[in-house]
Design a binder for these strands. Structure first.
Lengths: 234, 234
DNA sequence: GTCTATAACTAGATAGAC
DNA sequence: GTCTATCTAGTTATAGAC
């Protein structure tokens, strides 16, 4: 709202500092003891503020999860950009992107259950399909667009445009599986990724088949029709 | 634990009666005011018991949801059996089964959001994939088996065995969509069902294609491999 | 007017007596 | 089996400090 006081970087106001310290306290406690065991009182104490003050910045405990969400999305983006350098095969690029996500979130596996619990409530702004999540969703889909565009693969026109969003949806499925994965070192999720990515790409090739293409077209019009129904009543 | 006292029907013990009255009170309150607004104190009061006593029968508020779950599953089963009589076309039978579910659950749409929130926590016994839900899941898959077996469709051997479970998984997807559906009279979900069931059946036909069959085989072995990974570490 | 703190409220859950 | 009394933790009301 006001001009910057010193350098070009945003000057951290007192409020922003307090806000950051609350998020830091929350995330470190979540990682140490899990979501449920981390009380708002403990979070506030570690952040060096009162409970009431914490609620001035975050209107609920669940809202603190958004901090986790944002931070990890940014870290994943950076890591994927590095790992993708020099890789041109589409299947490999997709694997790299998913593995980067997996590694970036390794420490939050237990915590993710709570996250999913919140995210799957359609009324919650944390839902990946909600309008509040539109920014994060678009960023993630944009990441997939880079994966596709940086590859040397020939993609059928039938689904060229929709592929990044489709891959994001596929990723949501992988995440859902990951949350339930109890295997050592997430071996099951890694196997799932390694095996399904090639299948998915073969399915993309199928989409050029006339028979399949018909179904794809049906799906596209269906989605358009559904969007209309969902939006009209508001 | 004891021999029946009178007729062949199970004699309702005192505990069973109390248990039933708590569930009745809970479900009626949920329907009236929603899940969150229905406090355990209000439920206990309507049931004519103390809060502590309610917790003697149900170890958490969420556990009361299982009552809703069981009751509706039974009602859906009965309704579907009637509606399916005389219908032989597989696509139509699948539609009938899904519409029966939809109609049976029409009154619980808002409440279902909470249900989903609970069910999607992998740690929760309410998850449709949990071992605690195995009974309900098997009943639902059995219902789909009746849908398939009562039809005159020729189903490729490739997936004959897996089709009922596949259809149940598809139904879980429909339910997920339904929970998010804000359209008048669930028009969007009905459209989704009417359009995707034929697509699904056409996809089943595809599974006979050699190219596609290969992918199906890959999927089957993948699932077997995943099961092994998930089960070993316990 | 933006922050911050203390005290109180609410509702899920538990302990222990009867 | 059932109750009363109590605990815990998320949330809010409200008053005051910068």
């Amino acid at each position: 709202m006001m001009a910057a006081t010193t350098s070009g970087v945003t000057p951290p106001t007192k409020g922003e500092q307090t806000r950051a310290s609350i998020i830091d306290a929350a995330l470190s406690l979540f990682e140490e003891s899990g979501y449920d065991a981390s009380t708002m009182r403990a979070i506030a104490e570690r952040a060096g503020v009162s409970v009431g003050n914490a609620y001035y910045y975050f209107s609920s405990k669940e809202e603190l999860i958004q901090g986790f969400y944002d931070r990890n999305a940014a870290q994943h983006e950076a890591r994927a950009a590095v790992d993708l350098e020099g890789v041109t095969d589409l299947v490999e690029r997709a694997r790299v992107n998913l593995r980067a996500w997996l590694d970036e979130n390794a420490g939050f596996h237990e915590f993710a259950g709570v996250f999913l619990r919140t995210a799957s409530d359609p009324a919650s702004p944390m839902s990946p399909f909600s309008s509040e999540s539109a920014g994060a969703r678009d960023r993630a889909i944009g990441g997939w667009r880079l994966v596709v565009e940086g590859s040397d693969a020939a993609i059928p026109d039938t689904i060229r445009e929709e592929l990044p969003e489709l891959l994001w949806l596929y990723q949501m499925g992988i995440v859902l599986f990951w949350v339930h994965d109890r295997s050592e070192g997430m071996a099951a999720t890694r196997l799932l990724i390694d095996r399904t990515v090639p299948m998915l790409m073969r399915a993309v090739e199928f989409s050029a088949l006339p028979m399949v293409r018909e179904v794809v077209n049906d799906l596209v019009t269906l989605i358009a029709d559904l969007r209309r129904l969902q939006i009209e009543p508001a």
